[in-house]
């Protein structure tokens, strides 16, 4: 009893009061592309990017592929590319993940009136890891821990697909998980939607060139939310969902 109280006192208050205002110290998140002109003919950032996330003229970074590894920042001779600790990177469209020069923060996720009406007060999620390295899976678990406490907004992970409203896919979608993913999806009752979590799920990420993948599922079902990162920060996920569902917080 006494030791239980000591634990309770040491625990204190852990939850982040306003997730949208959080500022994760040191986090390598949202890249910035500065106005500095590239050296003529320079392509130093292209070959060092492990996922082909960068395009030139003008410089663009596709967060759907980016692993936030910093190779481009270090390779650039004119310091054009940098990373901030911004975590608001989720998007409701694939195109919305592309960061451009001088654009500042990407446009926030648009509230989906349809999803807000259906799931704005209660959203149950089924996670399917399909080749995920446990980075994404740990961050999805962390979304429910005492710090981020996603449940306060009525958003929870559930065990059975039958109880779920959306499937959260992590990993690059392996051939060997293809059938299990299809069957889990069939188990979700309508209405339902898909969330792509992490660079692997969004684009294949570091595994895009592997012959061991079958990404057909995402060819047939377009995600309603893309959550970039390798792995994404729990804040990117929860705030993206809150924006999508019009949750004020």
């Amino acid at each position: 009893m006494f030791s239980s109280l000591k634990v309770r006192i040491s625990q204190g208050r852990q939850y982040i009061v306003d997730l949208r205002k959080a500022s994760p110290a040191g986090f390598r998140g949202l890249p910035v592309i500065r106005a500095t002109a590239c050296e003529a003919g320079c392509t130093a950032c292209l070959p060092v990017c492990p996922t082909g996330a960068i395009a030139l003229d003008p410089v663009r970074i596709d967060l759907g592929r980016c692993t936030f590894c910093r190779e481009c920042e270090l390779a650039c001779p004119v310091n054009k590319i940098g990373f901030t600790n911004g975590f608001k990177m989720a998007s409701d469209t694939r195109e919305g993940l592309v960061v451009r020069e001088g654009a500042g923060e990407p446009s926030p996720v648009k509230v989906s009136q349809g999803l807000k009406q259906l799931f704005g007060r209660s959203l149950k999620l089924r996670s399917v890891s399909s080749g995920g390295c446990n980075g994404c899976e740990l961050e999805l678990n962390a979304a429910s821990n005492v710090n981020f406490d996603m449940s306060r907004y009525g958003i929870d992970f559930v065990a059975s697909p039958r109880h779920a409203d959306a499937v959260v896919i992590s990993g690059p979608l392996t051939k060997h998980m293809h059938e299990a993913l299809e069957r889990a999806w069939l188990g979700l009752p309508d209405p339902k939607f898909v969330i792509s979590f992490g660079a692997c799920a969004i684009s294949g990420g570091l595994y895009a060139d592997s012959p061991e993948l079958d990404r057909g599922f995402l060819g047939r079902f377009t995600p309603s939310l893309y959550v970039p990162g390798c792995p994404p920060h729990p804040l990117t996920f929860i705030v993206g969902l809150m924006d999508l569902l019009g949750i004020q917080g």
Binding site: S129, G131, G171, P172, H176, M177, S210, P211
Partner: peptide
């Protein structure tokens, strides 16, 4: 189920 062909990549 998680085989992604790491060693080949």
């Amino acid at each position: 189920y998680q085989h992604r062909g790491v060693e080949a990549l």
